[in-house]
């Protein structure tokens, strides 16, 4: 492992950077507008004009995959951000305050985990209608519970360490102890969890969009492209191969990155992360 540095980290970082770069580039340039429908040019194989071919509406696949990367990343980032923004304070409060607060947070996370994520997503979209925002809400709610649980476990672990006990013994208030000593020491675990949650969120978004519950037309999304490809695979199998590969590579990259970071930051953290 040492001779090659960390191959997982390297591969993961490279994949993640590539996907991110593609998404960023799509903000300023795509080969074609991703929603330009040209029925006459539909179902073309990969050519010089269309590197990845065209879909059943004659849209350029490469452009759609580029913008799809942006959409996937946005949904994932906001969902994970939502999970952290709410989940981390909840987890810290549960760990430091204990008692009734701990019980309440534990109950809420239990409640969330009692519903399979896809079930919550289905119910939420049945309620609010399908759409990117609702997909974010559905994935975000799950992440709140994940981050609350991970933060609590990591914080309890840190709080048992002598320097934190010493600080508390010296009369520092719980808020100060939490912010000064606990939070910085759980940050590593949170970064790792964020990377992995990001991968899960991308997979979840793909699944929801595939079910027709996520990102809505005309905005492109990898999951939706797979859905649309399903009956056109006879003339054009690449329609399903490229978006599927994009999903798998993005998730693979983020997971490898997360694992690499974990190894770098603290080999012991892995034990508390509630992966997936």
């Amino acid at each position: 492992m040492s001779r090659f540095g960390h191959p997982g980290l390297l591969i993961g970082g490279t994949l993640t950077l590539l996907i991110a770069a593609m998404a960023l580039l799509s903000l300023v340039w795509t080969p074609y507008p991703p929603d330009a429908i040209r029925i006459a040019a539909r179902l073309q194989p990969p050519t010089w004009a269309h590197w990845l071919g065209t879909d059943h509406f004659g849209r350029d696949m490469l452009s759609m995959i580029m913008v799809g990367a942006r959409n996937s990343i946005s949904v994932g980032a906001v969902a994970v951000g939502l999970g952290m923004a709410v989940g981390v304070p909840l987890g810290l409060a549960a760990a430091t305050l204990g008692g009734w607060t701990d019980e309440a947070v534990g109950r809420l996370t239990d409640l969330t985990f009692a519903f399979p994520a896809i079930l919550s997503a289905i119910l939420i979209t049945a309620l609010l209608g399908p759409g990117a925002v609702n997909a974010i809400v559905a994935i975000g709610i799950l992440n709140i519970a994940v981050f609350a649980r991970v933060t609590r476990a990591a914080a309890l672990h840190v709080m048992a360490r002598p320097f934190v006990r010493a600080a508390a013994a010296l009369g520092r208030g719980p808020l100060s102890v939490t912010l000064v000593h606990v939070l910085p020491n759980v940050a590593g675990a949170l970064v790792v969890q964020a990377t992995i949650s990001f991968a899960v969120a991308i997979l979840a978004e793909a699944g929801l969009s595939y079910l027709g519950l996520g990102i809505q037309p005309p905005a492109p999304s990898w999951g939706k492209m797979l859905n649309e490809a399903q009956t056109f695979m006879a003339p054009r199998p690449t329609l399903a191969i490229f978006p599927g590969a994009a999903i798998a590579l993005a998730v693979l990259g983020l997971n490898l990155l997360g694992d690499g970071l974990r190894d770098l930051l603290d080999p012991r953290i892995g034990k508390v992360s509630a992966k997936r």
């Binding site: 997982g8 595939y210 797979l226 999903i247 798998a248 998730v251 997971n255």
Partner: peptide, 13 residues
């Protein structure tokens, strides 16, 4: 790593 990254609906197909 691959098993986690590949969407299961794709695998089923």
């Amino acid at each position: 790593q691959l098993g986690v990254a590949i969407p299961n609906f794709w695998f089923g197909i």
